[in-house]
Amino acid sequence: MGGERLKIILSLTPPLLIIFTLFFGGIFYGFLQSLGYQPAIGKYEINFSAYYNVMFSERYAKLFWTGLGLNLWVSFASTFLAAVFALFGALAIRKTFFAKTICNFIYSLNLPMPHLVVAVGIIFVFSQSGLLARFASQIGLIGSPGDFPVLVKDKYGLGIILAYIWKEAAFFFIILMSVLQSLGENFEELAQSLGANRWQRFRYVILPLVMPNLFSASIIVFAFSFGAYEVPALLGVIYPQMLPVMAFEFFLNPDLNARSEGMALSIIIAIIVMILVVFYFWLTQAKIRKD
């Protein structure tokens, strides 16, 4: 019995050591830095002043709260719209038809694309010097490319939202297609024979059936878009700035004291995402208990 236990402990030790050292070790050290502990520059005091500075100081408070607002808006809007596009795309092409394979391929194509490439693609297509602007100008819809609405590097994060929709819709699509295909059409056919029209079949049958998977995928996409740096860095404006970009700029600051603020901001981002994930698990567990 004792030998068995020792065997289990010994076999678990190497992976646990790696996880604790690399992951929790990094987080712990980052957390310490956010509390002002930076031995490299002779700071050993532990306090919450970096958190206070980021959230409430005259210098950073406005940046932080508008950045948080933009973060929430971009993440909610892009997650919701990507899910909606993917859902309608999956519903449109789930049935067998002659071009289904091609449509499937096109829809899933941008899944392996790096976010950076997608962001550059958005600039090429949607910026005021991009393809759409030039085309609209060529066909006389607008006077010059400069008249094209500002969709990239705009204060509402539209370019960022477009990039995330473009990229994440493929992720939602893959998940939804597998769910819809495993469900088949029997539930809808049944609902139809029970008198449900097209809208009712969508509202009362398809949506509730795909919702658990859609919700799980949404949490992943939301958490990613809330904490990702490269797309907002490329497609965002200086003010308002999304929180991950703001955090990175703290790190780039030649004044090493600013690193504590950067770490505090990163920890805040992680805590917000964690709260949402915990809320999600609480919701699903409550539903399981109710069932």
């Binding site: 029997n186 049944l190 024979s193 008198g195 449900a196 029209n197 009362y204 059936l209």
Partner: peptide
């Protein structure tokens, strides 16, 4: 259309809406 025929089908695997 199916939904207006008044013809109702009970499927082999019952298909009760799980939610």
């Amino acid at each position: 259309p199916t939904e207006k025929r008044g013809v109702v089908m009970v499927f082999q695997n019952y298909l009760l809406f799980p939610y």
